[in-house]
C-alpha cells in the first residue's frame, strides 16, 4: 500500500482535499520519508497520519531516530516527504512556508552573533518587510513576553543559554504566524531553567492562542505542556500512540504530582516501551 500511494493519488487529485480534516491546521496523511544512505534506505517516517487542530499544543515524544524532528521539519518544508501528503493551513507545506505561516524554534538558539538580541528578533521582520516603527514596537513586545526587556542591546554571547533560547522564541513570535514549531527547544538546558521556561511557554500559549507542535524527549515536559501527546517509535519512524490529555488548561507546576498527571506519564512510558521493546 505504501509503495502504491504516490502513483495512485497525484497531487492535483481532488480526493486529497477530502482527506484533510476540516478545521485541522496541520494534516498529514500516510506521510513517509526515506533517506537513501550508503548503508541502504533509512525509513525516517513511515505511513504517519495525524491532524493538529487550531490552538492545540501537541508534543511529539520518542527515542532518537523515531522521526519526531523529521516530522516537524516536514511541516516546516525543511524536509521533503517521499510519500503521502501534508497540508499546513490547508495548503502544501511549501506554500505555507512561503506565506510565512509558522515560526520555528530550533534545538539551539542559533542567534546570529553579529546582531544584538533586538537585532536578531528584528531579522525576520526585516526580511518580511515590516515598517521600522512596527519592527521596534514588535521587538519591544516580544521581549516583554519572554521576560527579556532591557536586554535588547546585548549580544547573544553575553547572555546565558536559557536567555538565548528565550530570545530565539521571541524571534519566532515576532511576526504574525499562528503556528509555532519547536524542536527540543529546552533540551540543552538544566532542569530548573527548563521548568521555568515550560511555565512561561504555557502562559504564552494561553495568551497568544497559537497552535504549537513541540518535539521533546522528556516525558514530564510532554505531559505538562500538551493537550495532545504523540508517542513515536523508531525503525521505521511511526506513531505508536496518541494521547489526549485530560489535564485542565490552567497548569501550575504542582500538577505534576497529581494522580492524573502520573497516569498519563505512565501511558506515555508504556507507549515508548512498546515501540522500543526489541532492543536495548
Amino acid at each position: 500500500m505504501q509503495n502504491a500511494k504516490p502513483g495512485d493519488r497525484p497531487l492535483s487529485d481532488p480526493l486529497s482535499q477530502d482527506m484533510t480534516t476540516p478545521g485541522a491546521v496541520i494534516s498529514a496523511r500516510g506521510l513517509s520519508l526515506t533517506f537513501q544512505t550508503n548503508d541502504g534506505p533509512v525509513h525516517a517516517l513511515k505511513d504517519v497520519s495525524l491532524d493538529i487542530k487550531k490552538g492545540e499544543f501537541v508534543s511529539f515524544i520518542g527515542p532518537s531516530g523515531c522521526g519526531k524532528t523529521t516530522f516537524l521539519r516536514c511541516m516546516a518544508d525543511l524536509e521533503h516527504p517521499t510519500g503521502g501528503s501534508i497540508t499546513v493551513n490547508g495548503v502544501s507545506a511549501q506554500e505555507a512556508r512561503k506565506a510565512r505561516a509558522y515560526g520555528y524554534v530550533f534545538q539551539a538558539a542559533g542567534l546570529y552573533p553579529w546582531r544584538t538580541i533586538g537585532g536578531n528578533i528584528r531579522l525576520p521582520l526585516e526580511i518580511m518587510g515590516y515598517s521600522k516603527a512596527d519592527q521596534a514596537e514588535r521587538v519591544a513586545r516580544v521581549l516583554e513576553l519572554v521576560e527579556l526587556a532591557g536586554f535588547e542591546k546585548k549580544f547573544p554571547w553575553q547572555l546565558s543559554g536559557g536567555m538565548q533560547q528565550r530570545a530565539s522564541i521571541a524571534r519566532a513570535l515576532a511576526f504574525d504566524a499562528d503556528i509555532l514549531l519547536m524542536d527540543e527547544p529546552f533540551g540543552a538546558l538544566d532542569e530548573i531553567v527548563r521548568d521555568h521556561l515550560n511555565e512561561q511557554l504555557l502562559a504564552l500559549w494561553a495568551r497568544t492562542g497559537k497552535t504549537i507542535a513541540f518535539v521533546t524527549h522528556s516525558i514530564p515536559e510532554a505531559v505538562y505542556l500538551s493537550t495532545k501527546i504523540v508517542v513515536m517509535s523508531p525503525r521505521p519512524g511511526r506513531i505508536s500512540d496518541v494521547i489526549d490529555s485530560p489535564l485542565p488548561k490552567e497548569r501550575p507546576l504542582e500538577i505534576r504530582d497529581t494522580p492524573e498527571f502520573i497516569e498519563i506519564a505512565h501511558r506515555v512510558r508504556d507507549g515508548l516501551r512498546a515501540g522500543h521493546g526489541y532492543d536495548d
Partner: peptide
Amino acid sequence: RMQRDLMRTYSA
C-alpha cells in the same frame, strides 16, 4: 545548517 534553515523558514 541551522542558520540557513532559519532563513529558509522566513522564506528569505
